[in-house]
Amino acid sequence: MNERTRAGVIFTYVCAALVVAVCLFPFLWMALSSIKVLRELYTIPPVWIPTVPTLENYRTVLFDSNIPRYFLNSVIISVGSTTLALSIAIFAAYGFARFRFRGKAYYQSFILIGQLLPTAAIIVPLFVTLRYLGLVNTYLGLILVYMIITLPLSVWMLTSYFRAIPVELEEAAIIDGSSRLGVLFRVTLPLSIPGIIAVLVYSFITTWNEFIFALTFATDSSVKTLPIGLAEFTTEFDTDWGAVMAASMIMTIPIAVLFLSMQRLFIGGMTAGATKG
């Protein structure tokens, strides 16, 4: 695409700058707040740049709170639920994308059912279900519950990515003697890597930030997750806002860096002529 005009290039950079500004603005505000002293957090007019930057808030978060432990819990739970959801979803999505069977539309809608029930309605009976299974206050409990959120996302998105892959590629492999599963793993998945990464990142983040289920189903410090840690900085009438901001930075930056490191896998774009086998 090197024949783009100069105006087009400028337009691209302007748009990119706009996206960066919109996405980063509140984030920068948080970052600045996290190094402000209490007095400068709420002033009229607002203070942009802290006059006495401090790392006190980070010290509080890292050494005087449960955040480090909750970070570990969050990693385990998010990795667990993302992996589990993705491995189940790959098969389901493949089934939906490549086969015709009776009632398919109903099964596809059923995948969404957990998300259609209002949270307020689902939370009590879900808690009862988890107790029945003996999974309250366990990693597995939260990992399972998060299937309600991550499965619809994973199944639906992967189905659409699989559909975008030309059927001819799979037919060629089948003619060469591959089994259905062989086709899925050797042809379809490698071609869907950008899609899988996108789904992975988003299910990971969704569970990483989930609050209400975590609040209800994880009441013990050994399984509490980061959003609960944030809530612990709030007392009855006050919030340690600097600490909340510092903790949010600690929650946000690793994920953005993780995604940055995955960019290599994202360059995708099938090579010219791939469809011709």
Binding site: A16, V19, V20, C23, L24, P26, F27, M30, V201, Y202, I205, W208, N209, F211, L226, P227, L230, S248, M251, T252, I255, A256, V257, F259, L260, Q263, F266
Partner: peptide, 12 residues
């Protein structure tokens, strides 16, 4: 820019 674009979603 791509990584920055996920930030609004990552912020709790």
């Amino acid at each position: 820019v791509r990584s920055i674009a996920v930030i609004p979603w990552v912020i709790p």
